[in-house]
Design a protein around this nucleic acid. Structure first.
Lengths: 197, 197
DNA sequence: TGCTATCTTGGGCATATGACCAATTGGGCA
DNA sequence: TGCCCAATTGGTCATATGCCCAAGATAGCA
């Protein structure tokens, strides 16, 4: 049993990565069900036969691309949330950071995968796990401020993020400035001051 | 073949309606770009040639179906919003009413059309107009309560509705009970009591 | 220098698709 | 009664699709 030639494996991994990246782009641009083996191969500058060599099926490619992207997107939010001067500032920074995602195919791809999860149980449970994890981080942050309803508010905040990015399709000027007063009220534990402001 | 049909014109309108209804179902079930002339015709129990007789193209069918559905959905919300004992109760009733939309293909179709609007300028402007109209009604309702930020809060509430219905894909138990404390804080004009409670 | 496991190529197969159309139907009206 | 025309039928066309595969290429190892 000889170990596989490293360079060949590396080349294969590079192609896998290119296909995954191309898939995310095309999901965002054309919609989940409009991505084909040939278009994704063309975008990755690779012959179409490679899709079924590196992935079990087109759906498997799209699923893996979607879960990777979701994980990366939430991963990028984590330091924004936690590296702020105080917990509430972190949550505000989170919403301010959404302004960078205008016209972002990656975020459209995320929403496309939410809808695709309706028809793909495996995708559904993978994304659900990531969402639950994110909600818990937000809830902990709220709990640190002595917020009255950390869990319920985290659910609403997570949904609000996706809803705002959805509505930005129709209203590209929708920025964190607009939503700030409402978010303020969500983060505030009504009346009495919180531990972090 | 069958019982004496109504006049030809009326029959034509009936077929149009059946195609429109079938289109909404299939958009919700399979995704916007996965709806074909043949599947929609089969669902409507009609031959596939009729699609291009009654509509200029498949996209035109889907577009009309999406806009009609959006208009009908928002139209159904209107009485809920306005026929309550007071404005804030109307807004709470709106959120409570969302519980009925669990596993609703119609709502999935609405979200699918949001994403399709990304690739169809005509659909985009039609849906944008309906959303702006809805936001204004909510803003008026908030203004009647003496709310401090009626317009901004209406934007956030509209986005929250779509976000919550999106997240319900992963969390079917997500009900108005859970979101109530957060929505309460959004509707309340911080500290001092509003005109309607 | 072969040898081997891995990766890549280009094409093929069965099926599905959007759009189109000539031919047919059938109800209302002169 | 017989004509008109919107509505309907069933099929064709060129193209696109997912998946598969036999043959070739490539780099590390003996």
């Amino acid at each position: 049993m000889t170990s596989p030639p490293p360079s060949a494996v590396k080349r294969g991994d590079a192609v896998r990565g290119k296909l995954l990246r191309a898939a995310v782009e095309l999901i965002g641009e054309r919609g989940w069900t409009a991505v084909s083996t040939r278009t994704v191969a063309e975008r990755a500058q690779v012959t179409s036969g490679l899709v079924h060599y590196h992935f079990a099926s087109l759906q498997a490619l799209l699923r893996e691309a979607a879960v990777d992207t979701m994980r990366a997107t939430l991963g990028a939010m984590r330091p924004v949330l936690t590296d702020a001067s105080d917990p509430v500032a972190g949550l505000h920074a989170l919403f301010a950071g959404l302004d960078q995602h205008t016209d972002d195919v990656v975020w459209l791809a995320v929403t496309e995968s939410y809808l695709a999860a309706t028809r793909d149980p495996e995708l559904r449970s993978a994304l659900a796990a990531l969402i639950v994890e994110f909600r818990e981080e937000v809830a902990n942050q709220l709990d640190d401020c002595g917020h009255r309803h950390p869990a319920e508010t985290a659910v609403v905040l997570a949904a609000l993020i996706d809803g705002l990015l959805l509505h930005r399709i129709f209203d590209p000027r929708l920025s964190a400035d607009t939503t700030r007063p409402a978010v303020d009220r969500l983060l505030d534990s009504r009346g009495r001051g919180t531990a972090c402001e």
